[in-house]
């Protein structure tokens, strides 16, 4: 299902110019996670020894209510490739 999303976002709607991807580039992703739900889930994933990509760096928030426009913008400002919020 997400595969479809990725395909869609590459369609003509994307405002981004296609540029050549340099060799060795790896997606840099930030996840904002609520301490009590998503962060616990991430912890559980670790305990269950599930493997997931190492591109995702997690920022723990006490609650996703702590999330601020500025956090997201700052991430993009510094050249982060993707941000997701889970909680």
């Amino acid at each position: 299902m997400m595969g479809n999303d990725a395909a869609n976002s590459e369609g003509p709607k994307s405002p981004e110019k296609q540029q050549e991807v340099p060799a060795g580039w790896k997606a840099n992703i930030i996840a904002f996670a609520c301490h009590y739900c998503a962060f616990a889930a991430a912890d559980l994933a670790g305990v269950m020894r599930l493997s997931y990509p190492s591109n995702v760096k997690v920022v723990r928030l006490p609650c996703t209510g702590k999330l601020d426009h500025v956090y997201l913008l700052r991430a993009f400002e510094r050249g982060i490739d993707g941000v997701f919020v889970a909680g």
Binding site: E16, P22, A27, N28, I29, V56, D81, F84
Partner: peptide
């Protein structure tokens, strides 16, 4: 999923 999506999109224009 999200990593696959971003990899498909490539690096951000800001990057």
């Amino acid at each position: 999923e999200f990593t696959a999506r971003i990899t498909a999109l490539g690096p951000s224009p800001i990057w």
